[in-house]
C-alpha cells in the first residue's frame, strides 16, 4: 500500500510540476493545489505503518494508527487552503490590472 501510494504521489508531483511550469497563471495555481494533495498523501505514508491499528481515539482498540502524521496533515490542509485562496486572488487581481493571465506577458508590464 505504501509503495502504491508513493507512486501515486510521484505522479501527482509530476503533474503539479508540469502545471507550475506552464505560462498560464490559472494552471500554476491549480498545480500548487495538486502539489498539496501529493504532500498530504506522502506524509500519511511516513507514519509507523498504514492500517496497523484502529482510529486514533482512545478506547477504540488495543493499537492505534500513527496519530502524528494526521496532526501534521490537518495543519497542512488548512494552511494550503489559505495559500491556494491567496494565490487565486493574486492571479485574479493581477488579471484585473493587466488584462492577461499569461505569465510571459506579465513581465513586460511596467507598474506605474
Amino acid at each position: 500500500m505504501e509503495t502504491l501510494l508513493t507512486i501515486l504521489t510521484g505522479i501527482l508531483v509530476a503533474v503539479a510540476t508540469y502545471l507550475i511550469l506552464s505560462r498560464n497563471v490559472q494552471k500554476v495555481v491549480l498545480g500548487t493545489a495538486i502539489l498539496s494533495h501529493a504532500a498530504h498523501l506522502l506524509i500519511m505514508t511516513m507514519g509507523k505503518g498504514l492500517k496497523s491499528g484502529s482510529v486514533p481515539i482512545l478506547g477504540e482498540g488495543p493499537a492505534y494508527v500513527d496519530p502524528l502524521p494526521q496532526a501534521l496533515i490537518l495543519t497542512s490542509i488548512v494552511i494550503s487552503f489559505a495559500v491556494t485562496a491567496l494565490l487565486l486572488v493574486i492571479a485574479y487581481r493581477t488579471f484585473q490590472e493587466t488584462g492577461t493571465d499569461n505569465l510571459y506577458e506579465w513581465r513586460d508590464i511596467n507598474d506605474e
Binding site: V78, F81, A82, A85, L88, V89, Y92
Partner: peptide, 13 residues
Amino acid sequence: AVVGVVVTIILSI
C-alpha cells in the same frame, strides 16, 4: 479564526 478567514475570503471574492 477559521470561520472568519474562510468567510472573509469567499465574501471578498
